[in-house]
């Protein structure tokens, strides 16, 4: 047998091949490829309207691809509803925070365990032993998660009453509640001040080392990306224009012209 590189033997968490999404005449994403190995921390950048969030929406099953394939842990997600894809181990946060504002912080985490609940309607209304065991475990794990995210003192508060930065942290905690293999962060630094951003960088790095999770993030703050990501892909008008280490991306002529325009007018 031939010896192969370790990177190629580990099964990818996410494998996207030839992904294209058409909205009427607009190609929001065109022939996109990506392969995320376990425990990678990868970035996706591009100017406004480049199709970054569309890629995330396609991966989380919110849109169906026009062509191409997405495989999560080797399973083709074609035609699956978003909650089924989440059950395969994909979790995400949103550009504009989408917490359940009338449920307590603790309940936000508990409901995010829906995919691995282990009981159904009849257990819930008869309060069977299974119900009590599962609820007990869900609550314990939810409280543990809140504790490691330093949110435990807010457990009984409503998310809408928390500061913006704390809401961000809660949303990331909620995404991790289902023990995902892949975490998609959609502009986690949007709307944060510079102090919060430094904290976010620490948080993402800490999650990356302490949770067994691959992180794929979209972000406009270049300093965040340069500091965190092992590699970055750049898209513009749905097309991949560059890929490489943060250092390579910073000096890539195509990236510079996409962001700043080229000098030919």
């Amino acid at each position: 047998m031939t010896k192969t590189q370790p990177e190629t033997t580990t099964a990818p968490v996410l494998e996207i091949t030839g992904l294209t999404r058409q909205f009427g005449g607009l190609r929001a994403v065109a022939d996109f490829h990506e392969r995320l190995a376990p425990n990678e921390l990868v970035g996706l950048i591009g100017p406004n309207g480049a199709g970054k969030t569309t890629v995330f929406n396609l991966v989380s099953g919110f849109y169906q691809p026009s062509s191409g394939a997405i495989k999560v842990n080797g399973v083709d997600t074609k035609g699956l509803k978003p909650h089924r894809i989440t059950a395969l181990g994909v979790a995400r946060t949103f550009q504009n925070i989408r917490l359940w504002n009338e449920l307590t912080v603790l309940d936000n985490i508990r409901v995010a365990r829906h995919g691995k609940l282990g009981y159904g309607f009849f257990h819930a209304v008869t309060r069977s032993r299974t119900y009590h065991e599962r609820e007990h475990e869900i609550e314990r794990e939810a409280r543990e998660l809140l504790e490691v995210f330093q949110l435990d003192r807010h457990a009984d508060e409503l998310p809408k009453n928390l500061p913006y930065g704390t809401q961000r942290r809660l949303e990331i905690a909620r995404a991790l509640a289902g023990k995902p293999k892949l975490l998609l962060l959609d502009e986690p630094a949007a709307g944060l001040n510079s102090v919060d951003i430094q904290e976010l960088i620490r948080l993402v790095r800490w999650i990356h080392t302490h949770f067994d999770v691959t992180i794929w993030m979209i972000e406009h703050h270049m300093d965040v990306m340069m500091e965190l990501c092992q590699r970055i892909k750049v898209i513009d008008f749905g097309e991949t224009i560059a890929a490489g280490t943060p250092e390579e991306i910073r000096n890539h002529p195509a990236v510079i012209s996409a962001y700043l325009g080229d000098d030919k007018i």
Binding site: T86, L99, G178
Partner: peptide, 16 residues
């Protein structure tokens, strides 16, 4: 209640 408050978030957060 999660569906009432944000159905998209509920579906993405594994609620069937």
């Amino acid at each position: 209640m999660a569906i009432c408050q944000d159905e998209v978030a509920a579906e993405i957060m594994s609620v069937n």
